[in-house]
Structure formats: C-alpha cells, structure tokens
Computed example of a mutant assay.
Amino acid sequence: MDLNILFAIIAGFCLISGLAGCVLPVLPGVPLAWAGLFAAYFCSFSPISRTVLVVTGIFAVLVTVLDSVLQPFLTKKFGGSKKAVWGATIGLVAAIFLGPLFILLAPFIGAFIGELLENPDDYGRAFKAAFGSFSGFLLGTGLKMICVIAFIWIFVLAILKGTA
C-alpha cells in the first residue's frame, strides 16, 4: 500500500474519532483530531504546512485546557462543590451506556446528585450547581466541536487543493 494513502486513512480516522471524542469522555477529541492533521502533513497530496500544524496545535492545546477548566470553574462559580463536578463527570461516563439522549441529561443529573450529597437539604443550590456544571460541559463541548470541525475542514480543503 502506498504510504500516502496510509497516512490519509490514518488522518481521516483520527479526525472522525476526534469528532466522536468531543462528546465521549474516553477519547481525547481535539488532540486526536490534531493527530489527524499531523498524519495528513506526511501525505504528498495534502499540502498542510508546518505553520498550519503549529497554529492548529496551539488551538488544540488551548481548547483542551479550556475544556478541562470550564466545567469545574463554572460549577464553583454557580456555588457547586467538587462532588458536583465529579457527579457531572460520572454522569457523562454513564451516558455512554445509556444512549445519546443522556449525553446532555446525565452530566446535569450527576452534578445535581453530587451536590445533594454535599448539601442534602439544599435543592436550590444543587440545581444552581448542576446548571453551572452543565453550562461548562456545553461550552467545553461546543469549543471542542468547533475546533475539530475546523480541523476537518482544513484537511478536506488540503486534500481538494492537493488533488486539483
């Protein structure tokens, strides 16, 4: 098999897996998608430059760090505890087994339950903390989706430009 085709297949696989990783916590979405661009760099028919790799790499790091910080920050900003953050994370992992609908509901429910474990009598605080955690989850997921879709767009344009 031609190495160019192998690198293109690896790039495409990493980019699609990165897109899935935006919502699945077991896959590092943005770094995986960037690895796809890195693989595409080695294809002779994909004119991705070092500059593009460096710029997208910087974005990948920034988005990954922001995603890690947003949910705990917003949970705490809305009055939540570490148990709310853990509850949201556990809810997201549970959502993998419960189905796509639960990817949105489970982090909220998990944060709510986690905060109730910390403050059993304060439903208002638990709801507020769950809302903050859910907001952080949505914002982080949105940023990851935008970044990975941009990486996919760069890859597609590079392939089209290289084969034209």
Rank of each mutant, 00 (worst) to 15 (best):
L6C: 06
G12Y: 07
A126L: 02
K161I: 09
S68Y: 10
R125F: 05
V54E: 13
L53H: 05
A129E: 00
S46P: 07
T163H: 13
I113R: 06
Y41V: 06
L92E: 11
V63R: 04
A95R: 06
A94C: 11
V55E: 13
F13N: 11
G80L: 04
F151L: 13
V65I: 15
T51Q: 15
V156A: 10
A40W: 03
S133K: 03
S68A: 12
S17Y: 07
I48R: 07
P25E: 01
A111L: 06
F108Y: 08
P107N: 05
S135I: 01
E115T: 01
K82C: 10
F127V: 13
G87S: 02
F127Y: 13
L66F: 07
M1G: 13
V55R: 14
L101A: 15
D67G: 05
G140R: 00
V30L: 01
T64D: 06
A11S: 05
W34H: 04
S81K: 04
V23R: 11
F108W: 08
L62K: 08
A20L: 14
C22R: 09
F127R: 15
T56L: 13
N4G: 15
N4D: 14
P72Y: 00
Q71F: 04
F42H: 08
V23T: 14
V93R: 02
A60D: 03
C14Q: 05
C147L: 04
A164N: 15
S68T: 06
A33C: 04
A158W: 03
F102K: 12
P107E: 05
R50A: 14
P72N: 00
P31C: 06
G12Q: 08
V93T: 06
L105Q: 07
L66Y: 02
G36N: 09
F151E: 14
F151K: 10
L138H: 02
I48F: 03
A39I: 06
A158T: 09
I96Y: 01
F151N: 09
L6Y: 10
T51D: 15
T163D: 09
W153A: 15
L101Q: 12
F45P: 09
G12W: 07
A129S: 01
F42L: 09
E118Q: 11
L117C: 10
F155N: 08
S133E: 05
P25L: 01
I5N: 12
V148G: 05
G114P: 11
A94L: 11
L6Q: 10
A88W: 00
G21R: 05
Y123D: 11
G36C: 08
